Simulated scan of single mutants.
Amino acid sequence: MLETLSIRDMLLIEAAELRFRPGLNVLTGETGAGKSILLDCLGFVLGWRGRGAVRAGAAEGEVTAAFALPPGHAAGAVL
């Protein structure tokens, strides 16, 4: 399960940390609020090729995700 998504200096986002809870998590907001940027950043940590851009004035951007696996989960063997 995705537990946190931390973003620094990506497009419009100077710094953000989202914490997810078990169950359904919903992102809402007005047009242009940055929902698609959040999803693109999640895609970066999953290995998608991105159209991402570093925020204007920043030397680099950073996206970090923390995942938790239940004991015995098959992905644990790969990791």
Rank of each mutant, 00 (worst) to 15 (best):
W48K: 15
V54I: 10
W48E: 13
P70L: 15
G23L: 11
G50R: 10
L18I: 12
G32Q: 04
E62P: 00
G61R: 05
E17K: 13
L46Y: 03
G57A: 10
L2Q: 05
R8F: 00
P71F: 06
L38N: 01
V26K: 12
S6T: 08
G76I: 01
A66F: 06
L12K: 03
I7A: 00
L38D: 05
G29I: 06
A15W: 12
E60D: 08
L69A: 08
A65R: 03
M1V: 12
M10N: 00
G23H: 05
L5Q: 05
S6E: 12
A56I: 07
S36W: 11
G34S: 08
L69T: 05
G32M: 04
P70A: 13
G52R: 08
D9G: 01
A74F: 08
P71S: 11
L5M: 09
F67I: 15
E17W: 01
P71Y: 01
S36G: 02
T28N: 05
M10H: 04
A59Y: 04
T31R: 09
P70H: 10
G23C: 11
G32R: 01
A59W: 05
L79A: 08
G23F: 06
L39T: 12
A77I: 07
A68I: 14
K35D: 09
G43D: 04
E62N: 02
G43S: 03
L27F: 11
I13L: 08
V45I: 12
F67L: 15
D40F: 02
G32N: 05
R8C: 06
A58E: 00
N25G: 05
E14K: 13
P70E: 14
V78T: 14
D9S: 07
A33S: 15
T28A: 13
F20N: 10
A74V: 11
E3Y: 10
E3W: 12
L12H: 04
N25E: 10
R51Q: 08
V78I: 15
L5K: 02
T4V: 02
G29M: 04
L2I: 15
A77R: 10
A15Q: 12
G76M: 02
R55P: 01
L2P: 04
V54Q: 00
A59Q: 10
L79F: 12
A53S: 11
R21S: 14
A74Q: 13
A16N: 07
F44V: 15
G32F: 03
A74E: 11
N25R: 14
D9N: 15
L2N: 06
T31H: 05
M10I: 15
M10S: 00
R49E: 15
A66H: 14
E62M: 13
P70D: 14
F67E: 03
L79H: 09
G43C: 03
A16Q: 13
R51D: 08
R19E: 11
A75H: 10
T31Q: 13
F44P: 00
W48H: 11
M1Q: 10
A15F: 13
F20E: 06
A58R: 10
I37A: 03
V78E: 14
A58I: 01
A58K: 04
L24P: 02
A56W: 09
L46W: 04
